[in-house]
Amino acid sequence: MLDILSFQLVSQLLINGILFGTMYGIAAIGLSLIYGTMRIIFLAQGTIIIFLAYICYWFFKLLGIDPYLSILLVVPVSLLLGMGFYQGLFREAAALEDKNISLLIAVGLMFLVENLMATMWSSNPRSIMTSYTAYGVSTLGLRVSFTRLMGFIMAVLSTIGVNLFLNKTLVGKAVKAASEDMEAAALVGISPHAVNGIAFAIGIGLAGTAGVALATTYSFDPYFGFIFALKAMIALALGGMGSVTGAFLGGILLGVLESVGSFVISGGWADAISYGVFLIVLMFKPEGLFVRSVKKA
């Protein structure tokens, strides 16, 4: 009896961890792309995810648009938003040697958006209640909520999509090339502004997917974004900078660690575990857990 219980318990913890970890994963892929060409951690990523979760929420609340249908609006809007962020905020700073300026702009953007959301929409937590929100899939005594499962599927599809873009299209290869060596990329005729803009567009586009997944599954408030960005950064460190699949797996690993850790020790420890793991990985395997280190010739 005890054995079966613990098997179910462990499986349930793993599943919850994996499903929540995919959120960190998509956020981390966005960070990875933007870091690739811009060489900054885009700290506003989490806050932008929350902002886009609100957009999804308002589409549902005010216009009655189903959250999953609203992806068709939210993702294009976020792609444009990403391009706009680059052209409007980062274009000048990106050309500078000192990357701290770009980083500070990201921090400023984060606080601005956070405070705007709190002022306009209050800091009360919001969540989307649909007819299927409480619906779950049960097998073998395990229960998976429908919305979490959808979030997982969206995350997997986004990861595949970004990978295909980077590996199969010429523009995607240009983004990869620029992530490795921006000057060499410029010398073959790749415009730094173009690849930076594309990295931002896709990074924020992914934030759109994450926003919808978040809005349909969890309750959220304007201040959740910063912690979310920190978690995405940890996922990125786990997975290794510059690897899309690594970032995604890093997110899942972090989700599982938090889920199992907060059960085994106590709920309050989830964040402490994450930050502890973050430091340990950076100290002992700074290139990430899923990256084979290739020495430059």
Partner: peptide, 30 residues
């Protein structure tokens, strides 16, 4: 730089500066 390439000047930088994670063919595509 991209406009300089367009008008017919190519520069092979010191130390090759290849895109090492891309294949030979992908480097040529770029």
């Amino acid at each position: 730089p991209q406009e300089v390439v367009d008008i017919g000047i190519s520069h092979v930088p010191e130390g090759r500066r290849l895109f090492t994670r891309l294949s030979v063919l992908e480097n040529l595509e770029l």
